[in-house]
Design a protein around this nucleic acid. Sequence first.
DNA 1: AAGTATGTGTTAAATTTATCACAAAAGTAA
DNA 2: TTACTTTTGTGATAAATTTAACACATACTT
Lengths: 209, 209
Amino acid sequence: MQNMQNKQIPDIVVGRLPSYLQMLKRLKTAGETNTSSKELGLKLEISAAQIRKDLSHFGEFGKQGTGYSINYLIECLEDILHVNKVWDMALVGVGFLGHAIANFQGFNHHGFQIKCIFDVDPSKIGQFVAGHIILDISELEKVIRKLNIQVAMITVDADNAQDVADKLVRAGIKSILNYAPVIIKVPSGIQIQYINPIIKLQHMTYYLK
Amino acid sequence: MQNMQNKQIPDIVVGRLPSYLQMLKRLKTAGETNTSSKELGLKLEISAAQIRKDLSHFGEFGKQGTGYSINYLIECLEDILHVNKVWDMALVGVGFLGHAIANFQGFNHHGFQIKCIFDVDPSKIGQFVAGHIILDISELEKVIRKLNIQVAMITVDADNAQDVADKLVRAGIKSILNYAPVIIKVPSGIQIQYINPIIKLQHMTYYLK
DNA sequence: AAGTATGTGTTAAATTTATCACAAAAGTAA
DNA sequence: TTACTTTTGTGATAAATTTAACACATACTT
């Protein structure tokens, strides 16, 4: 039953796996060696049944009566999510946000490594940020292809994000994390995710007076 | 039929409204005055029927045959989401991430204004960041109560996030935007949202080879 | 060794969410 | 006016997702 990725697993299920992995790593760091769907569920505020059902799409990782070995489940989830390697990334846009993200260490600690940084502004090109020289966006396709990078982050403004995304896709990028507050069209097969704190805040103020 | 908030509107519906508002503002900036569920749907990659259905929970804002007046729908959505005012915010944690967020101008441009910043580190307290003096976290409750702040952002590490959230709730905070990679428990009635780019990246690498 | 408690993976039921299809309204043009 | 087009708002329907129920396996207790 292991690794039967044939049945087209719902994306919403895949989207929950990283949080399971994150919690397992926290438990491991805290010195735990075993856990259960019940414990994970309590900590993640997800029902135990849902966690078991989600995992069951990918195989059988637990032992009845015992639960899950934390080390083993971490290994399995890292395999499933393909995060048992370091992913190289490109970053486009060195405004304030891009600058901040270039310096953010959280990516490195989780297997994501910025390899090249681009901007369109001639006054920025050639400058250094977070140990990387800022490259001209006209070199984007050449450099990304040469470095064989598949993951990129967009930190340009809303008006330029689609254009940058198109360039990234042409360069062979397969996954885009977009910080610009705009929906981006990508061909099927290209992954895109959004980071938009304003939308999250506005969602919450609905419930305030 | 206007403003019948009796029927308990699904949170997932509320969560889509900010993106509708964002797109409407973009269309307005671009000089448009009218739009339709069809146009919005195309731009947001959401079905026109879903947009109409979502809006219908709150009232009737369009004209059959004509569509929506952009200005009017923006006003209505701002009313619904309570973003037709400036919300004061507190920020807790002045590590690299907190520093970056304190300087991020995007919040100000959308009606969210940082009013006070806290940290636990004595070497940081008293320093200035983004024009605000960093206050001792021991003053958190007093200051937040005095300023009557309802919205806060957490940018401390995972191990301290729950503790900070508890302090914030005790201080009267009602909505929390949490950047720490951990699920936080809050009493019912308190809103919490998460920003977690690592999880988004790991979601996407599932589809990569 | 027997009995109890725990926890899995699976199947079935219930709930939530999204889509469809259409009557009615509003504009346009002959 | 009348015919035609567009687009809304909304019941009805379909799909997706979550929750609950269950049978079996393992571990612990006495």
